[in-house]
C-alpha cells in the first residue's frame, strides 16, 4: 500500500521540508504585500501632496469646495484637522489645521470683545459677520459650518464655547460657562424674530406661557444672567426687555 508521504524517518523529514518551504513562501508573500502597501501608501501620499498643493488655496478660500472636501474626508474616515501631534500629515500638508485654529482665535476675539454687551451669547449670523469683517473678507467666504468646526477645535481649552440650537434651526454661540435653560432658548428665538425686543405678552400669546413663567424667565435673564437689557420707556408696554445678542450692531 502506498501512502502519500510514506512512512518512517524519511517521511518525517519530507514533511518538515515542505513546512519549511511553505513558511518561506508565506513570509515572501507577506513581504511582497507589505511592499505593495508601502508603495500604495507612498502613492497616496504623493497624490495627496499634489491634491494639497493644487487645491490648498481653493480649500482655504472657497467655502463650497471646503465643505465638499470635509464631507469627503468624513466619508473615508479621515480627520483633516488631526494636528501634527496626532500624527496627521493631512493637516500639515493642507494647512487646514492652521486655518481652522486661526479662525478659532478670531471667534474668541469677537466673542470676548462683544461679551460685555451681549452677556456672552452671540447669534451665529452676527458672529460670522463680525469674523468676516475681522478677516477683511466679504460675506460667504466663512460659513457657519466653518465656525462650528473651529469651535470644536476650541473644546480642549475648556473655555466653554458652545453652539446652542435655540429652535427654528437658529444657532447661537455661547462663550461663557452658563447653562441656557429651555425657556431662555425660546426667549432668544422670539427676541431674534422681533429684532431684539421681547415682552411678556409676546411669550404669553405665541407660546401659551403663563404670565408668571414669562416674567420669571425674563427677570432671570435680566437680573441674574445679564443677557437682557431693560427699557422702561417702551411705547406699547411701558417696560420691555431687549436682548443685545440678537440685535444688529453696525460698529
Amino acid at each position: 500500500m502506498h501512502r502519500l508521504g510514506g512512512v518512517g524517518l524519511a517521511a518525517f523529514e519530507r514533511q518538515q521540508q515542505s513546512q519549511r518551504s511553505f513558511s518561506a513562501l508565506s513570509s515572501e508573500l507577506s513581504a511582497s504585500q507589505v511592499t505593495a502597501l508601502h508603495s500604495q501608501l507612498s502613492q497616496f501620499r504623493s497624490a495627496l501632496q499634489t491634491f494639497a498643493s493644487t487645491h490648498r488655496e481653493s480649500i482655504r478660500s472657497d467655502p463650497a469646495f471646503r465643505h465638499a472636501f470635509q464631507q469627503m474626508c468624513a466619508s473615508i474616515g479621515v480627520d483633516p484637522l488631526a494636528g501634527p501631534r496626532k500624527g496627521g500629515w493631512w493637516a500639515e500638508m493642507l494647512g487646514l489645521g492652521d486655518w481652522q485654529y486661526e479662525l478659532g482665535v478670531q471667534i474668541v476675539d469677537v466673542c470676548v470683545s462683544t461679551r460685555e454687551r451681549n452677556g456672552g451669547v452671540i447669534e451665529m449670523k452676527e458672529l460670522v459677520r463680525l469674523v468676516s469683517k475681522l478677516r477683511g473678507v466679504g460675506g460667504g467666504v466663512i460659513t457657519e459650518d466653518d465656525v462650528v468646526r473651529s469651535i470644536k477645535t476650541l473644546q480642549p481649552l475648556g473655555a466653554g464655547y458652545e453652539v446652542v440650537e435655540v429652535g427654528g434651526g437658529r444657532k447661537m454661540v455661547r462663550s461663557v460657562v452658563k447653562e441656557l435653560d429651555e425657556d431662555q432658548a425660546i426667549v432668544l428665538t422670539i427676541a431674534q424674530e422681533e429684532g431684539g425686543r421681547i415682552v411678556e405678552d409676546v411669550l404669553v400669546m405665541r407660546r401659551g406661557w403663563t404670565r408668571d413663567r414669562a416674567t420669571a424667565a425674563l427677570e432671570n435673564m435680566l437680573l441674574r444672567d445679564g443677557l437682557c437689557w431693560l427699557d422702561e420707556q417702551d411705547e406699547r408696554s411701558g417696560r420691555a426687555y431687549w436682548v443685545p445678542s440678537v440685535m444688529r450692531w453696525d460698529d
Binding site: L222, L223, G226, L230, D231, E232, Q233
Partner: peptide
C-alpha cells in the same frame, strides 16, 4: 455711536454689571 439708537440704552439697568 450705534448704541445711542438702542432703546434700552436710555434706561438705568437693574443689573449692576450691565
Amino acid at each position: 455711536p450705534s448704541i445711542h439708537s438702542a432703546p434700552p440704552f436710555f434706561t438705568q439697568q437693574p443689573n449692576a454689571s450691565t
